[in-house]
Design a protein around this nucleic acid. Structure first.
Lengths: 339, 339
DNA sequence: CTGAAAGCGCTTACAG
DNA sequence: CTGAAAGCGCTTACAG
């Protein structure tokens, strides 16, 4: 069943049918109804590829998972962002195309090539550490791109990230208000922009509140995982007195740190208060429940959709949007509010 | 840059270029090399839409999230399965197209119509409860479909699920070996096939081991969430003596139940042993860490890809593949092995 | 081993 | 308000 059949059945030309499909105004109402009825009855659906071939618009958005997270999309943060994005961009009439990175690497293909191949109208780039060159080729091309947690600078790109300095500021401020003056930090070597900002933001916030950061209380964790937090906290304890309060740059690091503290006979939050970052599901079920910072993934995803839509449909400058993070108070910080 | 340019630059016809692109054997080696070189230099990539239009093959797989989970893909189980699926199907040369369900519902479109619109070569259907009619239209069509946790019966369909009866059997057996004879069950009203099988499998296993199931020890939880488990466990405790061991049909139910037990002054596992199901990340961080059943999502996703590939490329009967679940022993069951 | 030409199913100036 | 026709970029019998 194609447009020719419909035209034939309705006794009009394919041009007329096409115009009706695309809501052109200058069609006789009677004709329109007749054709519409036939399309309805025959359950006719135009073909995406023919339309794309002729219009150069696919109504498809390419989804790029860049950097170390390349292999999958299992991190809750990204899943939440993509979810919100999908919802909003769906409302705007687009579907999502996930590039499989596998065949990809194998054949040395790049994102730009694949974007062209599928003629996607735009891309969303979600990023971990150590982003590959190919992402920046995409960024520099005329394919509209929206970055999440990655600094895209192309003329047809924008990017969105949480205000990571603010994350650290909120944590330090919260600790300060609880009366802690001796605050420590555990985070991965800052390979990505967000991690850089969390660390420098932490240092800036400490300074702002007039607190000194003992060198032995600020340690790199290697990775992002529970094991890394555990090992790093152990190192910190063994190097001397641990800080009164600890900010871990990810929840898993915090969870690992709490395990180390418990093993060394230190109580959370009575001896050491702990705050993580991300608000993964596990935070609610740890012992004690973990106070953390929640990134507003809902807003990030939705905003990404709106920005990308504008990028695809109007002239727009490159810009960066920061999204406000939120403190989620549970028990591990020793806050009264959590009782 | 299109095939015509390439043909022109190489001084051959477009037919020849096309044959080279598609690895036809009957092309002169010299010609082949010359054309290949030019394609390389110009970074030429064929257009997907033109190719699809002409071949009716898009090398795209539609991803359908059916039923109550419709709105997103945030459940860890599905994310893991899709991840594994994506990896394998990517290797086979396919990309993934996620249908946005939003515009969808609004316009009363159905999955089959969209599959035709994009000319996807096949679909993977992932399912929650209360699957909509439209999914079964898809199933009945000639679009090859692979179902995850949903019984697809079409001539071009297969489905995969964990052996859910086995899940319950493994739990009951584990409890039995630990010496518990008084075992309870909490699960949602069985709206989906997996939940039905877990429940009936549980009852069958109890019978197999000659244990009686007290009526007050088998309760419906309403939903799947932590809150549901909490409320249901409370009901069970208040109705009389709780069972010595409890199987909760999802981890979140188990976590909620543990909270209820703790609040009522009962210890896990000393007073009541608990086992959940799914192995969500949180299990490792609860207090005590939750023993659970892990579904082999890696294998399910990979197998889904292989089956779908066969479904798309050769004649194949409808069939159902069951995947073996695995017991993950932690502390909440009171097993020696976890010490 | 290579090429001319029809065809895939749409859209869009353009003419009337 | 409607239609004829060219064009989008490929593939594939078919002829040579």
């Amino acid at each position: 069943m194609n447009i020719k059949h419909i035209a034939h059945l309705a006794g009009v030309s394919v041009a007329t049918v096409s115009k009706i499909i695309n809501n052109y105004p200058d069609i006789g109402e009677e004709t329109r109804q007749r054709v519409l009825k036939i399309m309805e009855e025959t359950k006719y659906r135009p073909s995406s590829s023919a339309r794309t071939l002729s219009t150069k618009k696919s109504h498809l958005i390419g989804v790029v998972f860049a950097g170390k997270l390349n292999v999958d999309f299992s991190h809750p943060f990204f899943v939440q962002v993509i979810n919100a994005f999908k919802k909003q961009i769906g409302l705007l009439g687009y579907d999502l195309l996930f590039f499989s990175n596998e065949k990809f690497l194998e054949e040395g293909e790049d994102y730009l090539a694949r974007s062209n191949y599928f003629q996607v109208d735009g891309c969303i780039v979600i990023s971990g550490d150590e982003v590959e060159r190919s992402v920046f080729d995409l960024d520099a091309s005329d394919v509209p791109c929206i970055g999440i947690d990655i600094e895209l600078t192309g003329r047809h790109s924008c990017y969105i990230m949480s205000d990571n300095a603010k994350i650290s500021l909120k944590v330090v401020e919260h600790f300060y208000m609880l009366g802690y003056r001796d605050i420590g930090y555990i985070g991965p070597e800052p390979a990505s922009l967000p991690m850089k900002q969390r660390q420098s933001g932490f240092e800036a916030a400490m300074q702002m509140f007039g607190m000194k950061l003992a060198e032995s209380h600020s340690l790199y964790s290697g990775g992002y995982q529970e094991e890394d937090g555990y090992a790093t906290m152990l190192r910190m304890i063994d190097e001397g007195k641990p800080p009164r309060a600890l900010f871990a740059a990810t929840d898993l690091l915090a969870i690992g740190a709490m395990r180390a503290l418990r093993e060394r006979g230190l109580r959370v939050p009575e001896d050491v208060a702990v705050v993580g970052c991300d608000d993964i599901e596990a935070c609610r079920y740890t012992f004690p429940p973990l106070t953390t910072i929640k990134q507003d993934t809902e807003r990030m995803g939705k905003m990404a959709a709106m920005l990308l839509f504008d990028l695809m449909n109007k002239q727009m400058d490159n810009r960066c949007i920061q999204v406000e993070p939120e403190l989620v108070v549970r028990t591990s910080c020793g806050s009264e509010a959590s009782r």
